[in-house]
Simulated scan of single mutants.
Amino acid sequence: MVVFLGWTLLSVCLLVCASQGQKNFTAESGQNVTLTCQARKNIQTVKWSRADLGDEYVFLYRDGRETLVHQHPSFKDRVDLKDKQMKDGDVSLILKNVTINDTGTYECRVVETGTSGLKPISIIYLSVVDQPRRPVGLIVGLSVSGVLIVAAVVGFVIYRKYKG
C-alpha cells in the first residue's frame, strides 16, 4: 500500500511538473551542470534567477556584457553562458562545482531586441546530492584480507611440499 501510494504521488508530481514546462535535473556535488535555455536570436538581456535569492540573481547579461552588481555571492566566478555569442539563441548557463546549496528552481528570462520585459523561457529544478562516499576502510580491509588468504594458501602448499 505504501509503495503504491508513493508511486502514485511520484506520478502526480511528474505530471504536474511536466504540465508546467518545468524540467527536473539531478547532479552530484562537485559536478559542472548546464542549465539549458533556448531563445530566439537578437537577445538584449538574459537573466538567470532563483526565487529564494530575493533581489539578487544567479547570472545577468545586459547590453553586451555580464553584470555583477547584484549577483548572489555564492554564484560569483561559478557561472557563465555556455555560448557567449549566444548563437542560435542558446543562453544555457554553466554552473560549476555544484553543491547541495545550489538545489532550487532556476528560471531563465530573456529580453529580445525590439521587445520589453523579461519573458520566461525555461524553468529548471536542480537537485544536488552528495557524492556517494567510497568505503575506504572496507576496501583496505578486504585487500589486506585477500593478501593474507593468498599468503596462507601459498604457505600451506609450501609446507605440504617440504613435509611430504
Rank of each mutant, 00 (worst) to 15 (best):
S127N: 15
S19Y: 13
S11I: 12
R40C: 02
L14V: 15
H72I: 06
E56Q: 07
T113K: 11
E107C: 04
K163I: 06
L5V: 10
V150K: 02
V140G: 14
G30R: 14
R133I: 04
P73F: 05
C108H: 13
N32Q: 12
C17Q: 13
V154F: 00
K23C: 07
T105Y: 05
V58I: 06
M86L: 14
V144A: 10
A27D: 09
C37Q: 01
D52M: 07
K163M: 07
H72F: 10
F75Y: 15
V129P: 01
T103E: 08
N42Q: 09
V98Y: 09
V58G: 05
I100Y: 02
H70S: 08
D90W: 01
C37A: 05
E28A: 03
V3E: 05
V140H: 08
Y162H: 12
E28Q: 08
T34E: 11
C37D: 02
K119M: 10
C108K: 13
A51T: 01
I139K: 08
S92W: 06
D63N: 13
Y125W: 06
S19P: 10
L138V: 07
D90Y: 01
V69K: 11
Q38W: 02
P132E: 08
L126G: 09
S116D: 11
V129L: 02
S122R: 15
Q38G: 05
V110E: 00
G146D: 14
G54A: 02
R40N: 06
Y159H: 14
K163V: 08
L5S: 11
R134Q: 08
T26N: 09
P132D: 08
R65C: 01
V2N: 09
